[in-house]
Design a protein around this nucleic acid. Structure first.
Lengths: 169, 169
DNA sequence: CATACTTGGTCAAGCCGGCTTGACAATATA
DNA sequence: TATATTGTCAAGCCGGCTTGACCAAGTATG
């Protein structure tokens, strides 16, 4: 084997520039940028990505843990753990569900709502900084494309049992 | 507190649609799609995302572990672990560096190169399927935008000591 | 040339985040 | 009364790292 096999170029470029890899790196970088700021601005040093990704599934009127679990696609125990954290941070509170004696409604506290708004502000800021650098059109296109991608991947996620969920070793 | 505070809408939409969240979800979904296929197609059930993200840092001529480590931004021990895995899979091999008695060059085996090509094929396939669904323009725009985003975020990553790397608790 | 220092790699242990599974009591529903 | 559902306690797994300690080989200096 010499130095550079014939497919070296193809390999090299493809290795680095695939959309999949790019998505991953962009997401990682974006988070590393946003999270510390959110922690700082919201005064919540313990805030982690998993908490953030739980929030969209909590309705403002309150939501049961079990519901959150199915929405987020994780076990209710996992939800419980995250909600514990959020409760300790003062972001959410658990109130008995008037409809059902077993259930509790997870809902944002006043402070939680405020923090949420602040957090969204942080995201906006990060987004706007990025927008400033890459330009309005690129940013808008990115947004639209991502929406489409997520939509497609989510819709076709269940129907592709081809290779099992994550590797039927 | 009533039912829906005045900022409910803003909150609801922003919670779900921020570019950051979208990036994260898209990346996760993309991987969940691609990885099982790669495992299957390459016959490497043990393949994991971290292995994939190491590969771009391995030159075809061979690269030292220490170099890979700095490129990937992780410790050399972490690299060693991943390289161990890849070696067991027959993807790479360690050869003594002729220039330096201490060093070893991590390089792809023949099978490794073949698998790499196959893997790239898988990525292409997934990408093409996606492209088919969201359309050529959107896909191209996504690609370009991601390149720009990664570029910007990487360039400005070091200079923003503002809140410490990840939270100076 | 002998010394100290640096650099490359390895062994071992452990941490943290994000989950899972199992078992269980309390409540609701058929 | 039997069965399902809600939430909780507890334990543990897996992935992706880190830190610390160490040896072997190279480099610089007096």
């Amino acid at each position: 084997m010499g130095t550079a096999p014939p497919f070296a170029d193809e390999l090299d470029t493809a290795k680095r520039a695939s959309v999949g890899q790019l998505l991953l790196r962009a997401a990682r970088l974006y988070n590393e940028r946003a999270i510390p700021r959110a922690r700082h601005e919201l005064g919540l040093p313990g805030l982690r990505p998993s908490h953030l990704s739980l929030m969209p599934h909590i309705d403002l009127q309150g939501t049961r843990a079990a519901t959150i679990a199915t929405r987020a696609g994780i076990s209710k125990q996992a939800v419980a753990q995250l909600v514990d954290d959020l409760e300790r941070m003062g972001m959410v509170q658990r109130r008995p569900d008037p409809q059902d004696g077993r259930a509790k409604l997870v809902m944002f506290t006043r402070r939680g709502q405020a923090s949420l708004l602040a957090g969204i502000g942080v995201l906006r800021t990060v987004e706007d900084e990025l927008r400033e650098q890459i330009g309005d059109p690129a940013m808008d296109e990115l947004h639209q494309a991502l929406l489409a991608v997520v939509d497609v991947l989510e819709r076709t996620a269940s129907e592709d049992g081809e290779y099992g969920e994550y590797g039927e070793d």
